[in-house]
């Protein structure tokens, strides 16, 4: 063991000291819900491949209040992911120049959110149309 004990400032909870980093950690944290939801769907897919009885077990499981509650949380997390994904987009994509003017950040975010809203409405409509 080294006799010198240099002071090393603890980094514990560094992100809690600044609202900007708190937001950053929350939007990065949505990935946990994306992973969990993909896991739930993957589990369902495996049940589907095992036949009707297995599928119905999985389907019935979704009705438990734990699952419903978890899906409500996941809905909030993924909704926040959608919002932040397009909010960050002006900084993650190359600049778009329209008519010699750089497209404003809000134009990019706004159109991204509009496309997402349209995509989700189309998805719901498609599922509704296929199911009836």
């Amino acid at each position: 063991m080294n006799k010198r004990r240099p002071y090393v400032r603890s980094m514990d909870g560094w992100w809690r000291k600044n609202p900007f980093f708190v937001e950053y950690m929350i939007h990065e944290g949505t990935a946990l819900f994306v992973a969990a939801y993909a896991g739930i769907l993957l589990n369902g897919l495996v049940h589907l491949s095992q036949g009707e009885a297995a599928w119905n077990v999985w389907l019935l499981g979704l009705k438990s209040s734990w699952y419903i509650g978890f899906h409500v949380l996941t809905l909030i997390a993924l909704g926040y992911h959608t919002y932040t994904w397009f909010k960050i987009m002006p900084r993650t994509m190359p600049p778009v120049v329209v008519g010699g003017q750089r497209l404003s950040a809000w134009a990019i975010t706004g159109s991204g959110l509009a496309v997402a809203a349209a995509a989700m409405a189309a998805l719901l409509g498609l599922v509704w149309g296929m199911a009836r």
Partner: peptide, 14 residues
């Protein structure tokens, strides 16, 4: 997931 995620969760989970 940004385009379809929330609606998928709503459909399959709620």
């Amino acid at each position: 997931s940004a385009l379809f995620g929330p609606m998928l969760v709503f459909i399959t989970g709620i």
